[in-house]
Amino acid sequence: MDKHRFAERMQAGKQKYYRMAYCYVKNEHDALDIVSEAAYKGLKNIHTLRQPEYFDTWMTRIVMNAATDFLRKNARCTPCEDTVLETVAVPEQALTPEDSLDLYAALGSLGDRDRSCVVLRYFEGYGFSEIADILQEAEPAVKSRLYRALKKMRVVLEKGDAGR
């Protein structure tokens, strides 16, 4: 893939990448920093993308990694700890949030990878196997993350202390 095709694919997915980045930092300037950094890393490493049909999965992973790197490097942001990952069997119905649950408002209560799972699944509509590809984790582990993230977000929202 050359720079022209890369630009074309970035143009097609830019709004999604921006919203994903925004979820981590909740402000325009930092979200732009993240997307810019992701564009830089993406084009710099474009030769590693062997199959162009996987561009979106590949670029989504770069954006998410850029976002978590950004949080780690900026002292004003103290990332929450990820849920301790102990894979458990999770029934599908346990992964369905109720309509009134404002997952967006409670994202800040989650660690980086748990937050990525929620954004990809409930905001961007990715399937479990696609999320597993993006985060390079096993599918049961992704389900466990989502299950525990939902539980944690419900608690946070019930207490009324949601936020970044």
């Binding site: 143009q11 732009l32 810019s36 830089y40 309509d99 997952l103």
Partner: peptide, 25 residues
């Protein structure tokens, strides 16, 4: 469709987005 998804979809897209991507490239 849920409240969180609605709020996510309503994140305003920055007018500087093209230039930020271009800068990275």
């Amino acid at each position: 469709k849920n409240l969180g998804k609605t709020n996510y979809d309503e994140i305003p897209i920055s007018e500087e987005l093209d230039r930020a991507i271009l800068y990275g490239m």
